[in-house]
């Protein structure tokens, strides 16, 4: 990590106001990100996905987002106008979602979609876009890039679809990739391939990665640093390698609740939730 952080988040809050009450889904999240792999783990409802989306200002319309500071490479994302945001999205910050089926345009071939991403963000010509799209497909280890280029999203498998998504998101060479459960819909063997592609791209391009997942083992083995979220708050930050020695009772509870292959069968310790974990400043 060198110099100023790429991304600074301070006191990020996301509220949903309904007629009867206000629900605060993200409550005072703060972290900085350098050129590293940052994992965000938590269970459903912990606010991890919303946090990821807030960085691109892609939260649902009902959500009310506030932050003391939300800065990407010196640009204030809270104050940025729609045009600045549009230029940031895709070109400098990209996002990969859980299910490629919903993220790809079903009536366009996958190659054309990657080429379009290049033309929109990279300002390159038609022919060059095609060539670079083919190169991207190769970079995500698709064996016959020329054949896959002409396929429609429904003709590719889940694992290949996710690789196409990654190729598309990485085509404009972004500085930050936000991956929200990118491998949860995939089989373990395909998952390993997709992760190693991400891993290679991060180390070879010096890209920063925010990896949002519910899988503790995966995050611990894949990332450099981990944020553990619970009830809309970051309850613990640690080096990924030290996750097994985490100190917060919630993290410890989650770790203990995992079944393990090597373990002799015995009842799993059940997580007992302490209301104090929800209190800010604890």
């Amino acid at each position: 990590m060198t110099g100023a952080p790429l991304l600074t988040v301070e006191d990020l809050r996301i509220r949903f106001r309904t007629e009867r009450r206000t629900v605060e889904a993200v409550r005072g999240v703060g972290f900085t990100l350098g050129r590293e792999r940052l994992g965000i783990v938590g269970e459903s409802g912990s606010g991890k996905s919303l946090t990821g989306r807030a960085l691109l200002r892609l939260t649902p319309p009902a959500a009310e987002v506030t932050a003391q500071r939300l800065a990407f490479d010196g640009i204030d994302l809270m104050a940025a106008d729609a045009r600045t945001l549009r230029r940031l999205r895709g070109r400098r910050i990209s996002m990969v979602m859980q299910d490629p089926k919903f993220s790809l345009n079903p009536v366009m071939t996958v190659g054309a979609q990657i080429a379009e991403a290049l033309r929109v963000h990279g300002g390159v010509g038609r022919r060059e876009a095609r060539e670079r799209a083919l190169a991207m497909l190769e970079a995500v280890r698709i064996r016959e890039p020329a054949r896959v280029y002409g396929l429609y999203p429904h003709e590719v498998s889940g694992g290949m679809g996710q690789r196409v998504m990654i190729a598309m998101m990485l085509a404009p060479d972004p500085d930050l990739l936000i991956a929200d459960e990118p491998t949860s819909a995939l089989d373990v063997s395909v998952q390993a391939q997709v992760l190693s592609i991400l891993d290679d791209l991060v180390s070879s391009r010096g890209m920063a990665l925010i990896f949002i997942s519910h899988d503790l083992d995966l995050v611990a083995s894949f990332c450099d640093r981990v944020l553990v979220m619970y009830g809309g708050r970051v309850v613990e930050t640690c080096r990924a390698a030290d996750l097994a020695q985490a100190s917060h009772p919630y993290t410890r509870g989650l770790l203990a609740a995992r079944p393990r292959i090597e373990a002799e069968p015995a009842d799993l310790p059940v997580l007992r939730r302490d209301p104090a974990w929800l209190e800010e400043g604890s």
């Binding site: 995992r258 079944p259 799993l268």
Partner: peptide, 15 residues
């Protein structure tokens, strides 16, 4: 299911 809920359900099934 979430990890913590999974543990509860697995324990229940074992019992």
């Amino acid at each position: 299911l979430d990890l913590s809920v999974q543990a509860e359900i697995l324990n229940l099934l074992r019992r």
